[in-house]
Design a protein around this nucleic acid. Structure first.
Lengths: 255, 255
DNA sequence: GAGTGGTCTAGACCACCTA
DNA sequence: AGGTGGTCTAGACCACTCA
């Protein structure tokens, strides 16, 4: 036992920092409050800025902080519970929670999607772009891939693209009689276009929800929806909305 | 339009690197193959090691790489589809996919769990620790919180802890007649103890599945299961198992 | 002991936002 | 224009694995 440290593994600095900062957030800060800037925090804790940033990154990943370039770092509100259960392709959705179709195009789907659709390697399909908003905030961007065979009655060429076309495709898919679906969730990083919709930088962590829409057991469409991982909690149950009833009005630091 | 760069935003180096490396992985590497070490890769691309690491980090987050200290960086296999739908507290589970109880203790649950359980602030509950293995690999670590009130017939003090005690609690919970559940999924980072079970470093990205087990509409237990985000894809549908049928035996570099 | 990835430093410059 | 977070560098040392 001479040279070996006895059972005390030296914790990385950034990990310890994260713990300390996390506790400070609980006790000394309120939601929305602005933290001191990174250079000052680093100096205050006696570490390099890169180390401090590593701790902040983790806290942001856990949804406890929100950082915006040119603005600052703020304390994040608790994650939004977003229902991802049975709301279908054009699901009803509460007034404050809705999908908004943006566009439509004919594209060759990515390989992973083509495999699920069981279409040929370079067969073009309709790609409907939608975004989902909850409580006035954009939380998800989606690409819905619909093979032409799934919407046989779609008018040929009314308008080649745009929201109207997107709505047509959705309507026809609905009419086809979707009667089943299965989903999977995995971690990903936002592509440039998704990042833009979600108001994040490219590469931001996202939860990718892949949905197969079934018509009589056959895959009629596939959707790739990317949810902001920092601000969202995906709920699946029927009574999923477990909101923490905090007093809505909290002290905010006067500026 | 004099000083502004005309529509060409300079892509960050690490982002471009990630793209290049990603394409190389698709075309020039096979699953399990070892990449050159970080210092050499950085030199080869003419960037600092930190920048190269930023690209590798992203690829690891997306499940395309696997890095292990002291060993090296390897090409990761496609993510495992792990079913997270209706397998109950002591669910049946396929032979190759099972939960294994490890331990049991009486603890005061974290605040978030206490809120879901609707127990008092410092009321102690049973905490059962389990790990889940699929295809011989540990993919998840779970803490199941069971209030004493939910398992009234639990023998008082047979053994205070250990796997046997854990199994008793699970059996009694099952007997209580769980008839509902709801789940939520969010991004988190592995705590030290979870990281150990999952063979990852603390702070590794995980998908946290929170499950409420219901008995006649009342919350009887709450489970926090952390799945390795790098290697797992959580599936929810009924026919969720969409496996890419690769040849199971692949060439691995001889050492 | 040699080689790997993980942590950390002290700087620099850039892109973005607000005023 | 000044301040913020985001990117990048060139080094150093540490913890771990394996032969």
């Amino acid at each position: 036992m001479g040279t070996t440290q006895l059972e005390t593994v030296p914790e990385p600095k950034y990990w310890h920092l994260k713990t300390v900062l996390g506790e400070a957030l609980d006790s000394e800060f309120t939601v929305g409050e602005i933290l001191p800037n990174e250079r000052e925090l680093a100096a205050r804790f006696g570490v390099a800025r890169a180390t401090l940033r590593q701790a902040l990154e983790q806290l942001e990943l856990e949804g406890r902080l929100q950082r915006r370039r040119g603005v600052g770092t703020t304390v994040a509100p608790p994650r939004l519970g977003v229902d991802v259960s049975a709301t279908g392709a054009g699901g009803p959705g509460a007034p404050e929670d809705a999908w908004q179709p943006l566009d439509c195009a004919l594209v060759a789907p990515p390989a992973a999607v083509a495999r699920l659709l069981e279409t040929g390697p370079s067969e073009e399909v309709h790609a409907v772009r939608r975004v989902r908003s909850t409580h006035g905030q954009c939380v998800a961007a989606e690409l819905l891939y619909v093979p032409a065979a799934s919407v046989p009655d779609l008018p040929a060429i009314e308008t080649p693209s745009g929201p109207a076309r997107a709505r047509s495709v959705l309507r026809e898919l609905q009419r086809a009689g979707v009667n089943g679906q299965d989903r999977s969730v995995e971690l990903g990083s936002a592509r440039a276009d998704d990042a833009k919709e979600l108001d994040r930088l490219p590469g931001a962590p996202v939860l990718v929800v892949t949905t197969r829409y079934l018509v009589d057991g056959r895959t009629a469409a596939v959707s790739l929806a990317t949810y902001r991982a920092d601000t969202c909690r995906l709920t699946f149950g029927d009574t999923g909305e477990i909101e923490i009833s905090d007093d809505p009005q909290r002290e905010r630091r006067a500026s």
